[in-house]
Simulated scan of single mutants.
Amino acid sequence: MPEEGVTALVVPVPEVDPLLAAVAARFPDAVRPLPAHVTLLYPFVPVDDQVVADLAEVFAGRPPLRVEFAECRRAGGFAALLPDPADGLSALIGELRRRWPDVLPYGGRFGTEVDAHVTVALNTAEQVAEAVEREIVPRFAPIRAELREVWLLVFRGGWQVHRRFELTG
């Protein structure tokens, strides 16, 4: 569980929520209690007015991103859907990393570069992640999505949306 006040930048992907619901119905402990999303940066910086203004500048004028989630990548007890194309999300992550170079994805736990993805199983047995990849994902994929906003989340006993930034182009 994150510490109070920890922040994250995520892109919600509601089109993937039915797949997460199917995973949770069969493997409740494999899914986090969050809507489907692509994490841009976590943990992020503490929220203040300047951070919000800087984020508004980063996201201003950016168009919605059209992606498809067809490929599932699995490693141990982790399974994730990869966006195609990924370049729009990678560009957003790159811009954020240039603005906040000391902020490493996942605190550097997985290195300095992490591919954009939607997690569909996490911290579970390898057999569960394999079943998710082999049995559940194919019933839903490919999933086409239009990514229209970025959420700045703050953990306050649970994740709460602090600010939404629209991608309207």
Rank of each mutant, 00 (worst) to 15 (best):
123 N>D: 15
103 V>T: 08
52 V>R: 01
38 V>L: 06
13 V>L: 05
76 G>Q: 12
75 A>N: 14
51 V>P: 04
68 E>R: 12
101 P>Y: 06
22 A>N: 11
8 A>G: 03
5 G>W: 10
59 F>T: 14
85 P>L: 09
70 A>C: 15
12 P>T: 09
49 D>N: 13
33 P>N: 08
118 V>N: 02
164 R>T: 10
107 G>L: 12
128 V>H: 07
140 F>W: 09
134 R>N: 04
89 L>W: 08
13 V>N: 01
76 G>N: 13
129 A>M: 09
46 P>L: 00
106 Y>V: 11
49 D>G: 10
1 M>T: 13
37 H>F: 08
60 A>Y: 00
139 R>C: 08
114 V>N: 04
36 A>H: 02
156 R>P: 13
101 P>Q: 09
40 L>T: 03
83 P>G: 06
106 Y>P: 08
32 R>S: 11
72 C>P: 05
31 V>K: 03
13 V>K: 01
22 A>H: 10
168 T>L: 12
144 R>A: 14
159 W>V: 07
77 G>C: 11
116 A>V: 07
14 P>C: 03
37 H>Y: 09
103 V>Y: 00
95 E>H: 05
44 F>M: 04
109 R>S: 14
133 E>Q: 11
147 L>M: 03
64 P>M: 13
19 L>N: 02
110 F>Q: 07
61 G>R: 03
151 W>D: 03
137 V>F: 01
96 L>C: 11
45 V>C: 00
30 A>N: 08
5 G>L: 09
168 T>H: 11
134 R>T: 02
29 D>F: 09
112 T>Q: 12
51 V>D: 01
81 L>T: 04
37 H>D: 02
111 G>K: 09
70 A>Q: 15
103 V>W: 01
116 A>Q: 03
5 G>S: 11
60 A>V: 01
52 V>F: 00
90 S>P: 00
143 I>A: 15
44 F>Q: 00
83 P>E: 05
158 G>C: 11
157 G>P: 07
123 N>P: 08
73 R>T: 02
116 A>H: 02
42 Y>C: 13
101 P>H: 08
78 F>I: 14
152 L>C: 03
133 E>I: 03
129 A>V: 06
119 T>F: 04
169 G>S: 10
13 V>R: 01
71 E>V: 15
83 P>A: 06
15 E>Q: 11
150 V>W: 01
76 G>S: 11
88 G>R: 08
79 A>S: 13
157 G>H: 06
66 R>D: 15
94 G>E: 10
97 R>K: 14
73 R>L: 09
96 L>P: 01
129 A>T: 10
121 A>C: 06
105 P>Y: 08
86 A>F: 01
148 R>E: 07
152 L>H: 03
96 L>I: 13
167 L>K: 06
42 Y>A: 15
61 G>E: 05
19 L>V: 05
84 D>H: 13
119 T>I: 05
73 R>W: 06
2 P>Q: 10
53 A>Y: 00
92 L>D: 05
53 A>I: 00
137 V>S: 00
19 L>F: 05
31 V>H: 04
35 P>H: 08
127 Q>K: 15
22 A>D: 13
96 L>A: 09
63 P>N: 15
52 V>D: 03
122 L>C: 12
150 V>P: 00
144 R>C: 12
